[in-house]
Design a protein around this nucleic acid. Sequence first.
DNA 1: CGAACAGTACGACAGTGGTCGAACTTCCTG
DNA 2: CAGGAAGTTCGACCACTGTCGTACTGTTCG
Lengths: 109, 109
Amino acid sequence: MSEDAIHPPAEGLSLPKVLAALADPARLATVRTLAQGGESSCNQIRHDAGLEVSKSTMSHHLRILREAGITQSRVQGARRLLTLRREDLDARFPGLLDAVLQPEPAATY
Amino acid sequence: MSEDAIHPPAEGLSLPKVLAALADPARLATVRTLAQGGESSCNQIRHDAGLEVSKSTMSHHLRILREAGITQSRVQGARRLLTLRREDLDARFPGLLDAVLQPEPAATY
DNA sequence: CGAACAGTACGACAGTGGTCGAACTTCCTG
DNA sequence: CAGGAAGTTCGACCACTGTCGTACTGTTCG
């Protein structure tokens, strides 16, 4: 199979699902990395985001993001290149992505 | 006893926690109701938001919101009057609340 | 005072979610 | 072609979460 990945249509994005997807630190880091670095592969993201999780866990997180409509993946050879679905997200939830991507004011605790 | 409720300091708000708190439909409805109606009591919110949950469940949701730093409660007689912590949220996560409160472009489900 | 009301606390229970290792598929490369 | 790299899928496990009913504290009012 080539492109079986499940990508919900732009109109189908649900706010609770999107928020839930973003509510995990690992996935938040993933989204931020993706926002900065543009298109990259699963492993690359895992490395860039500094995530110390197994392949399967990473795959799981990426699936949540994809199924929430936050990311998009295309296959290139043995890799899957991921991108943020910026336009779709901005269209449906204006300002949300920007708010979430904003650097946090430090000292969370 | 007057003020036993746990309210995290404004600087202590964690984005994942806030997002997780907002990721539940019941709590999202609660926040929206609160944003529109201003200060109101638990039961009033439950009614206004059209939530059909038990008292204890409602109390649970409100606790999550409070502990995430999204709401604030003050005691007035037998009631607890809740408000959104708009300023704190806007200060720490600019645009987030507005993005989440924005009416959804219909047909979310 | 006593009954009804507002809300919290606790315990139980089912469902979900994050984590891993192992097995598998597909692709690239020597 | 054989070996390895990139990801996904699967089953297991444990922690967390949403739900409820019940019991409790405190308040208002008849």
